[in-house]
């Protein structure tokens, strides 16, 4: 169980893909849901939204950027190695329907989260315009898969190495001006989701975002992942992870994600020493 059957390095080794044996989860998982993973007995539990599932093979795919102790430990796992713990599928699935014209905006590893949602939206009959962004073209992931999952695809790079030279929000704005869009799904770094939501709010287009707060159990038991949605406090693990982008308090989310910054630095240093 939880054995890695396929492993790829993407974006010059900064992003890793793991396809993991998980028969029960692969049968159950729907777009938008996440799993909790733990590398070893002393590890932390971290949530990752699934990038793909293969119910016939009985596998799920996760894609993560190597940033802290947990992902550094994950990166060390080779094909044939097992995760100490893998739990899921958790969270509420994306509401998939035929809305008409949909724009999917993805940035960084948010593109991985966006992939099954985009695929499902297109299969449900929507016209799907996808806008992907990265700092530089060599850091962009899943271009081919996203192309296949969308009606049309735009690429934006901060350095102009491919496609539009600038941010995804520029292309989003243009698209919204040109066409009547029924739904926007934006998944990526917090500033990207925040600014996409600000634009769509102005233009009054419904927007779904997927949030990634710190979690412990992932089943509603601890309340660590609480987020402010309008006037309400919600638990992202059970009430989300997807919410109405126009109501999310992104600034609070950003601050809460930085709760353990100092501890994380200390932990990562210790982890790197022990790996070396």
């Amino acid at each position: 169980m939880s054995k890695i059957v396929n492993r790829e390095e993407m974006a010059q080794g900064t992003i890793i893909l793991n396809e993991i044996e998980a028969p029960r989860i692969s049968q159950k998982a729907k777009p938008g849901q996440f799993v909790i993973l733990q590398a070893d007995e002393t590890g932390e539990r971290i949530p990752l939204t699934m990038a793909d599932t293969d119910p016939e093979k009985g596998t799920i795919t996760i894609i993560y950027m190597v940033v802290g102790t947990s992902t550094t430990k994950f990166k060390e796992l080779k094909v044939g190695d097992e995760f100490y713990a893998l739990i899921g599928p958790l969270g509420s699935p994306t509401h998939i329907g035929n809305f008409g014209k949909v724009v999917c905006v993805g940035g960084g590893t948010g593109i991985a989260v966006l992939h099954p949602i985009t695929k499902a939206l297109k299969e449900a009959g929507n016209d799907v315009t996808t806008i992907l962004g990265s700092r530089s073209y060599d850091l962009l992931i899943m271009e081919e898969m996203m192309k296949a999952a969308s009606t049309r695809l735009h690429i934006c790079t901060d350095d102009g190495s491919m496609g539009h030279h600038g941010f995804v929000t520029d292309v989003l704005k243009e698209t919204l001006k040109k066409d009547d869009i029924d739904l926007v799904v934006a998944i990526g770094p917090i500033p990207m989701m925040k600014f996409c939501s600000l634009i769509t709010k102005e233009m009054n287009v419904k927007t779904i975002v997927s949030l990634n707060p710190i979690m412990v159990d992932g089943t509603g038991m601890c309340g660590c992942c609480r987020v402010s949605i309008g006037e309400d406090t919600k638990f992202a693990c059970v009430d989300g992870p997807e919410f109405d982008g126009h109501k999310v308090d992104f600034d609070e989310l950003g601050k809460r994600l930085a709760s353990y910054l100092e501890d994380e630095k200390q932990s990562l240093e210790a982890c790197k020493i022990s790996i070396a």
């Binding site: 029960r24 713990a85 899921g88 958790l90």
Partner: peptide, 10 residues
């Protein structure tokens, strides 16, 4: 069987 959320996994 640990890591099994009945209601979600099964």
């Amino acid at each position: 069987e640990c890591n099994t959320v009945v209601g979600a996994s099964v």
